[in-house]
Write a protein that binds this DNA or RNA. Sequence first.
DNA 1: GATGAATGAGATTTCATTCAT
DNA 2: AATGAATGAAATCTCATTCAT
Lengths: 211, 211, 211, 211
Amino acid sequence: MPDARGRRGIHSATVVVPARADKRQLLLDAAIRVFALKGYHAARIGDIAKEAGVAYGLLYHYFASKEEVLETVFRDTWTAMLDAIGGIEATGGPAREQVRRVAAVVLGSWKLNPDLVRVLVREVARSPQLQNEVGEIRQAMDALERIVQRGQEAGEFRGTLHTRLAAWVLYGALEEVLTGWVMGAPPENDDDVALAVRTVTEVVCDGLVLD
Amino acid sequence: MPDARGRRGIHSATVVVPARADKRQLLLDAAIRVFALKGYHAARIGDIAKEAGVAYGLLYHYFASKEEVLETVFRDTWTAMLDAIGGIEATGGPAREQVRRVAAVVLGSWKLNPDLVRVLVREVARSPQLQNEVGEIRQAMDALERIVQRGQEAGEFRGTLHTRLAAWVLYGALEEVLTGWVMGAPPENDDDVALAVRTVTEVVCDGLVLD
Amino acid sequence: MPDARGRRGIHSATVVVPARADKRQLLLDAAIRVFALKGYHAARIGDIAKEAGVAYGLLYHYFASKEEVLETVFRDTWTAMLDAIGGIEATGGPAREQVRRVAAVVLGSWKLNPDLVRVLVREVARSPQLQNEVGEIRQAMDALERIVQRGQEAGEFRGTLHTRLAAWVLYGALEEVLTGWVMGAPPENDDDVALAVRTVTEVVCDGLVLD
Amino acid sequence: MPDARGRRGIHSATVVVPARADKRQLLLDAAIRVFALKGYHAARIGDIAKEAGVAYGLLYHYFASKEEVLETVFRDTWTAMLDAIGGIEATGGPAREQVRRVAAVVLGSWKLNPDLVRVLVREVARSPQLQNEVGEIRQAMDALERIVQRGQEAGEFRGTLHTRLAAWVLYGALEEVLTGWVMGAPPENDDDVALAVRTVTEVVCDGLVLD
DNA sequence: GATGAATGAGATTTCATTCAT
DNA sequence: AATGAATGAAATCTCATTCAT
């Protein structure tokens, strides 16, 4: 059920009542497409409304500003991402396998919604402005760090490594692959994605150097 | 000697006329500080001029537009960075050592000019707009890829790895460390920087997993 | 009984059905409070509806526009005020006493509804826009002028004075006292009000100058 | 000499260098005309710029907002008014004469700039918003109160009267005369103005009642 | 080289009003 | 009567860029 600002929980009734289009979600989806195509700054409110097929001012019924639209996109995605990483953490298993699964989830997002990835990758720079969103990134980084730490504690990962830095390396590697895809060399099929997952995992876990 | 647009070589006449500050460089330095503080978009021409201590319109004497200022900052820095990486490539030596030296150069830039790093890290997202600049990033990536490739050819690096993806991993790891520093956890001393260089090199070259 | 627009006579059926609050009056009272607090222009329909505890669109059930709400407030009040002044005129008596009673009625309104006075005082300036309302102000001014005139005819008031200007002086004096109260120096008790009534009457009738 | 915001002292160099039109004053004068004609709210920035014969954005070169334009008009006028009243106070003389001269100055402003009076009278309602401006009104009121007080001390004015209330009566009387003129009954010539000055002075000083 | 007043297109945002339910 | 989502016109303000001096 929507609250005062019209927000719903992620698992809202949209599945149950698909007939009544949720205009808020319509706007959010439209915003992602428009932001992906023109960039946040070049995107005008009118573009988003037109893309969503609703009136100009309706966006302001659901969001306080253009910025809040982007912020919502960020937060929604990061929340889902945190859930997914949390799930991987929870299942336990070998640290290397957890790294692989995180890579699979992060890089797999490209297939689900390339436009969304485009927006996330291009507009990260706005993070300093989007203070709240930083919180979620930090949480993701914390989760990655915990994975590394548990790997060390299990004797699986090199114990001498600085865990925060190692988490940064993993995170940076994944982000840069997505960036590469966004910047002009997208994966052509599932095999390309699988190769990327495998390569990131191998480099980060086993290293470039031949033993 | 300044050309029509007023540009000079990096090692310009400032050495000859040190008393009379080079206003162009003054503006460039001011721009870096302002971009670092407020971000490119929020930065106004007036802010830059005031920071440089020169008049409003003078910026347009030296640069065609605000965009060109950022572009110049990018190009100047990337040119220097490419030179440095080129030098590392040229000296040859073990691939692992080359990776370490690249990491040292990239992460060492923080000490030289943190604001500059801030700008570079935050505004990469503008790359699609800054068409020219993409070229330089690609060249840097090409250099990294060549280092990986030569490592493989020398039997030092794992031959099965996709070289482009491996280059992305390395590049992403370095950028993320800088980003981490920018976002609020800067290195406190040279040891912190050295630790980061060592950690990135170890993770990327030797992997997280204990052999 | 409500007419097509839902208007009722002042002494409407609210007396008969006190349990079920009259939403129209609820809105009107809420509007006065909101106008008093934020001013007519800054007041939004949503503010009024929320203050009244009714839904957004209901206001348009009872009033054609936001302007009509203010107009109604004005008209209702001025009608009552005209009745009161009319009563004073009708009873006859010394002109000085009539002036005193008018002052008592006008200044006494503060106790009854300070917010209403706030609105009336602040939004008079909108008169040119509120064409209808000007009519009622003019009628009030006419009544004051008649009082002065009769005072002259009775030989009680100085015959040489321009009656319209004299009426303006009286009206302005009363309005300014209310304004003073509105602007931050409200009367603390009935004595303060009585003092104001006496002072205005004395100054206007007897003058500042000691005979 | 203009300061950072382009403001000048009241007695600026415009008299000395009439050739170089002061665009800021041009805008201020245009604003008064437009505000007088359409009211503050209905007046668009474009109207003012066009009336002044300058470009849209220039208004924002000199003023931070439309509100600041109105505020400046208020403050400039009130400052001049305070100077004038201060001058009257300074010269001393009988209290009754001082009242007469204040009335002459206030009501005389109509001839100097009717549009300005229109704006001041109509937009007083904005005072609560224009907090700063209230200060100047209060100072004016203080000056009037001092005149009454000195009149009492000199044995010229009735000592029993509450001086603040008396000042309000005088101020309200003057404002209402201007309001009457603004609302549709302007003085046709100097005699009408002189009559108004005389009438206000007589009523307030000598009273309506025939001794 | 240097200055900063002047320009004006363009985008966000507001909010009174309508209308389907 | 009552609700509140939906509409869209209108207006302020920003700021990169130009240009006369």
